[in-house]
Design a protein around this nucleic acid. Structure first.
Lengths: 261, 261
DNA sequence: CGTTCGATTGAGGAAGATCAATTAATGTGG
DNA sequence: CCACATTAATTGATCTTCCTCAATCGAACG
């Protein structure tokens, strides 16, 4: 499932929680997360004095095969991370929001392993990896931030894989929307109405299905009043109850799936 | 695709390479990789003097929700990383071989985000995260190793997602075998014959398909002479030409996927 | 030697892909 | 501003792939 970070902090992690936490607890959690991101960004700005760069939709800040050297912190806008196979297959493997780091994939081999492409006008902060390490040596809190970002990315990628491997198409789209809402909520942004800055084809690519299936799934969710299309342009979506998306995902599992072992 | 690390180091990364590199180049690359892993393990052993612990098949070294505090380096054996959703879904999201680190997922939230389960008798080295950071402060080369391990994990996870999202079942299994062979080769182990220490159900779970489909795909690959079952017990597999697996994956993409039937 | 678990294989069905047509939104040049 | 072209999205009709259900077989084990 995409948004399992809450589950990890649950008191009984091996058991499914009977009922969702009260609304106000959620709000608290999101407020804290939002504050934390803000504080982290301030700290990065102070300690690193990063170069700031405005990017426009479609622009790549790095591409697969380029020499690694810099890391990027997303201050505003939205990015997609695209994996490219030698045979030409392209795969959107990750989405990046404010506060996320980009470029970790380049450390291992000295070359970036994918493309990072802006989906929107935004601002990124550029940091030389060497310089970052130098500052980290003096400031352990900064290193902690870097490790946390990498760790979160690992956990997030696994959730994506889980979603793709275990959920039927409709639930996958619902899960995706839930993840998006969660990502916005953590950044203190409004979540009752979201603007998908992706085409159906991009969403489908990310979720491992065709654009037609994405379209059908969205229509299906709209029929069930889980979402509503706003005005013209079907990328603006109203989400009356964000929890309903998670419930929908849960319910799609009803006939208990075969467990391992 | 699972094994794209080679592609990243290709001279023309945006273009598909017309013909595969010569056999000897591959051998060189693998020898270097194997040496590097050996050297890294030596260094870790010296600098960290980690606690060593023998684990047996089925044993978990950590479970989702447990307080984070330790990282683990796999010295021998094989581990699976299993993600667990609140609704009971289980998903094998990663496999770990000698030299791999386990537990990074716990850094972000202070709790492990998944289960790490031994599939085999093996030895892990246990390091307290705090202690590791302390040593890293004095020894930058060690920090580089840690970051490289995290980076590699991020890249690997994305390759998994790509495989699941873009390949049909047969090619996915072929890709999986290719990944396994590659992982062994990097560690200087024999690759003409491999022992899958996973049931068809586990493989299917990892690849997002049913055990029956895994079985059928393996039979299919065997009919095409890409693999051979060794003796009794269908988990021992001979792979005459490892490159043939990658070719099979490539061919499954092209307009005419009907190569063998 | 029966029991159990894992693997294989077949038949039928369902989810989703593919192909195709239509509509809606966006952009372009006159 | 409008006709036109272009791209995105929706929806329907078929077809394919893979899942589900079920039977059989082999290997491992007490």
């Amino acid at each position: 499932m995409f948004a399992t970070e809450a589950a990890v902090t649950a008191p009984t992690p091996r058991q499914a929680q009977a009922c969702p936490p009260a609304r106000s607890q959620d709000a608290d959690r999101y407020r804290l997360a939002s504050q934390k991101i803000g504080q982290t960004m301030s700290m990065l700005s102070e300690d690193l004095a990063p170069q700031r760069r405005v990017v426009h939709a479609g622009e790549a800040i790095y591409r697969v095969g380029e020499d690694f050297g810099k890391l990027f912190i997303l201050n505003s806008g939205l990015f997609k991370i695209v994996n490219l196979a030698a045979d030409g297959r392209e795969q959107v493997v990750s989405l990046k929001f404010r506060g996320d780091w980009l470029g970790f994939d380049g450390i291992a081999n000295g070359r970036y392993a994918c493309d990072a492409i802006a989906m929107d006008t935004g601002e990124i902060w550029v940091v030389a990896y060497d310089a970052l390490l130098a500052v980290c040596a003096r400031k352990p809190a900064l290193l902690a931030v870097v490790h946390e970002a990498m760790s979160r990315e690992i956990a997030r990628d696994r959730d994506s894989l889980m979603s793709v491997c275990t959920l039927p198409a409709d639930a996958r789209v619902a899960d995706f929307l839930g993840y998006w809402v969660d990502a916005l909520a953590r950044r203190g942004l409004r979540t009752d109405q979201i603007t998908l800055r992706m085409t159906r084809a991009e969403i489908g690519n990310y979720l491992g299905m065709t654009l037609e299936t994405v379209s059908r799934s969205l229509s299906q969710l709209a029929r069930g009043r889980l979402i509503e299309f706003v005005e013209k342009g079907r990328r603006e979506i109203r989400i009356p109850r964000a929890e309903a998306l998670a419930e929908y995902v849960r319910d799609s599992m009803t006939p208990a799936p075969a467990l391992l072992q």
